[in-house]
Amino acid sequence: MIKVENLYKKFGKNQVLDGLDLQIGKGGIIAVLGPNGSGKTTLIKCILGMVIPDKGSIEVMDTPIRRTWKYRSEINYMPQIADFPGNVRVRELFDMIRDLRQRPDRQEELVELFGLEPHMQKRLSTLSGGTKQKVNIVLTFMFDCPLLILDEPTTGLDPAALIRLKRLIREEHSRGKTILITSHIMEFVAEIADEVIYLLEGRIYFQGSVEELKKMTKQKNLEHAIAALTTTTADA
């Protein structure tokens, strides 16, 4: 599904991605983890073509993505901070994205699921953080695409919405989709992810299942396993 080879990216003096190699197969929920500033968002943005790497190649569905944009119609991306143009109404935003994507969607169903009907006529700047995140979720899940990239999807959600989000992710998973998630909430990751990728200083430090990670670090739960991973690397 995604193949990244020898990826380098520097912002100023800060080497964010340092020769990163990564292969992700089709289907499955993959959690991209790592301490703050380890390059998770940069990696995702490179895959999306929002950040242009200094060196290296990326293939999405067997096509190199350099200088192309059409492959993005097969990706649903949920950005980290739901920053939308403030003076646009929720309904207008949905209409606009639908107009741009031109494919079948299930907006109505999702709007109902997250209880957004009362907000449809409101301007985005007047919405609370959690509601914006729900809008973000609807925008991400309303199209049927083989690849989903979710950057910190749980931010600001209430428990009920979180349960619905998890159900939604599982549903997409059962349809054979590839879902890439970054999160700092380990409970969420442990519950949902099939595979974990641990990024450190711009490289892949660990890639494997949650079980393998626990075995490797000799810890009983994921949170401690990740913490152990972070401290052992800090000591090294």
């Binding site: 993005r72 939308f84 741009l100 994507r101």
Partner: peptide
């Protein structure tokens, strides 16, 4: 002011 709008569009299948 349209920075957010631009970033939203950049993830869509539209050339820059």
């Amino acid at each position: 002011n349209s920075k957010e709008f631009t970033e939203l569009l950049l993830a869509q299948p539209i050339p820059r």
